Amino acid sequence: MASLQGISYKVVRGGPMLETSNALVTTTTGVAQDVFGKPSKRQVTVLSAQQWQQTCHELNIELPWTTRRANLLVEGLEFGPQYIGKVLHIGDLQLHITGETDPCKKMEMAQPGLEAALTPNWRGGVTCRVLNDANINIGDSVRITEQLELI
C-alpha cells in the first residue's frame, strides 16, 4: 500500500525546505505556510520515493528528497502521464493531478547532473491543485482515483 513519507514547505522564495510530520493543506494556502501555496495548477508538488531513488542511483549519490524542493514524498507509486486529471488521495486530502513537475536549473545548482537525471519518466514528480482542506500526517495512506470522492 502506498503511503506518505515526507512533508515539506518553504516560507520564503529560494529558502530552505522545512520538514514536518503533519500539516494542514488548504485550497487557499496549499501546504500550510508554503510561499508557493496559492491556488493554481501547481499549488502542491508530489514526488515518488521510488523515482527519487532511481535518480540518486543514476547519479551514484544519496541526496535528501527535499533537494527536489517538492512538498510531499509518497512511497509505493511511480508517476507518469496516465495520472493527469486523476485524484491523488493522501489520508482525507484530495489533490487533482494537473501535470508533470519539470526539473529546473535549481536542480543543477543543487547537484550537477540532477536536472537531466530528473527529466525522464516523470522522475521530477507531479503538480497538483488542492480540492479540499485536510490535515495530513506522515504514514497516511495514498491512493489514486478517477475523480473526487465525497468525504
Rank of each mutant, 00 (worst) to 15 (best):
C56N: 04
H57E: 15
H57V: 11
H57A: 14
H57M: 09
E58G: 15
L59E: 01
N60C: 10
N60S: 15
L63N: 00
L63P: 02
T66V: 06
T67H: 11
T67R: 09
R68T: 07
R69F: 08
A70D: 04
N71R: 03
L72K: 01
L72T: 01
V74L: 02
E75G: 12
G76Q: 05
E78L: 11
E78Y: 06
F79I: 03
G80T: 11
Q82A: 13
Y83T: 13
I84S: 11
G85Q: 05
G85W: 05
L88N: 05
H89T: 15
H89Q: 14
D92I: 06
Q94R: 08
Q94E: 10
L95I: 05
L95A: 05
T101D: 06
K105N: 10
K105H: 10
K106A: 11
M107W: 10
M107N: 12
E108K: 13
E108C: 07
M109V: 15
M109P: 10
M109A: 11
A110E: 01
Q111F: 15
L114Y: 01
A116Q: 11
A116V: 11
R123F: 05
R123M: 09
R123A: 06
G124P: 01
G125P: 02
G125D: 00
V126I: 14
T127L: 07
C128Y: 03
C128F: 03
R129M: 15
L131F: 13
N132D: 08
N132H: 13
A134W: 04
N135G: 11
N137A: 10
I138R: 02
I138N: 02
G139Q: 00
G139T: 00
D140S: 09
D140E: 08
S141Y: 12
S141C: 13
V142L: 06
